[in-house]
């Protein structure tokens, strides 16, 4: 499997990941290498195998519906890059 620089750019955009233009080729090469490695999976037949999402066959535990969190806005926003009037600020969102 071989990815082009263009493929890399598309994936990078999907992941909102800035990549320097001069590095795109090298990412393409590394990613292609990783996909070659991964392609070894196709050497084994898995038709009747159930996918395994977790190591243990456990069931989701459920939480009682009881408010147990207090307002910590001040603490949380102390580490935020840009806030005003209790809101997180981001460049204008256009709908």
């Amino acid at each position: 499997m071989s990815l082009t620089a263009d493929d890399v750019n598309k994936i990078a955009y999907l992941a909102r990941l800035g990549i320097d233009a001069e590095d795109t080729e090298s990412y393409a090469k590394d990613l292609s290498g990783m996909l070659d490695l991964v392609a070894q999976m196709s050497t084994v037949n898995t038709d009747n195998v159930a996918p395994m999402a977790h190591p243990l066959d456990q069931v989701q535990r459920l939480r009682i519906d009881q408010v147990n969190e207090e307002n910590q806005r001040k603490t949380f926003q102390a580490i935020a890059p840009q806030v005003e009037a209790g809101l997180y600020l981001v460049p204008k969102v256009i709908e």
């Binding site: 890399v8 994936i11 992941a15 990549i19 990412y27 990613l31």
Partner: peptide, 10 residues
């Protein structure tokens, strides 16, 4: 970045 890209692709 490599791993994010591969994961996104997969």
């Amino acid at each position: 970045k490599r791993r994010i890209l591969v994961g996104t692709y997969a």
